[in-house]
Simulated assay, not measured.
Amino acid sequence: MNSGSENRGAEKIGNEVMLEQSVKRVLRLQCIVLVLLLLGIFAFYALVFLFSATEIVSESKPGNFAALTAKLKASIYGSMLAISGTILSARSVNRSSQATSDLCHSAMAPIYSGLLNKLVIVGGGIALGLIVLGLEPIFVVIGYFVVQMAAASRLVMNEH
Rank of each mutant, 00 (worst) to 15 (best):
G78H: 07
N15C: 03
N7I: 13
N7K: 14
G63I: 08
V26Q: 05
F49H: 11
L72P: 05
S84W: 07
N64R: 15
Q30F: 02
E16V: 00
M18I: 15
Y45A: 02
G40M: 11
L39M: 10
A66I: 14
N64T: 04
I76C: 06
A67M: 11
I56Q: 08
S79T: 05
L81S: 09
I56K: 05
V35E: 00
S79R: 04
V33P: 00
L38D: 04
G14Q: 09
G40V: 08
I83A: 04
Q21I: 10
T54H: 03
I83F: 03
N15V: 02
G78W: 07
S60I: 03
G78V: 08
Y45E: 09
S84N: 06
V23F: 06
K24L: 14
V26F: 01
A66G: 05
S79F: 06
T54V: 04
K12D: 03
A53W: 02
E11F: 12
E59N: 08
A70Q: 13
F49A: 15
A10R: 11
N64Y: 13
L34Q: 09
R8Y: 03
R8V: 06
S58K: 09
L27K: 04
L39T: 03
S84F: 10
A66D: 12
R28S: 15
M18K: 15
S79P: 05
L68T: 09
E20Y: 13
A70R: 09
L68W: 09
I32F: 11
I32P: 01
M18G: 04
E16I: 01
Y77E: 07
S22M: 15
F42L: 15
A53I: 05
L19V: 08
S58V: 03
L39I: 10
L34Y: 02
L36I: 12
E16C: 00
C31L: 14
A70S: 13
I56F: 14
M80S: 06
L27G: 03
Q21R: 14
S22K: 15
A10V: 03
Y77F: 15
R25W: 06
S58T: 10
P62S: 11
V35G: 00
R25L: 13
L50N: 04
F42V: 03
K71R: 15
N7A: 14
L36Q: 07
F49D: 15
F49G: 12
L39K: 01
C31M: 11
V57G: 05
A53S: 12
A67K: 08
L29S: 13
V33S: 05
L27M: 08
E20H: 14
I83Y: 01
V57Y: 11
E59A: 11
A74C: 01
F51V: 03
F65S: 09
R25G: 12
L38M: 11
S52I: 02
A74Q: 02
L34W: 03
A10L: 12
E16P: 00
G63M: 08
L47I: 07
E20Q: 13
G78Q: 05
G63P: 00
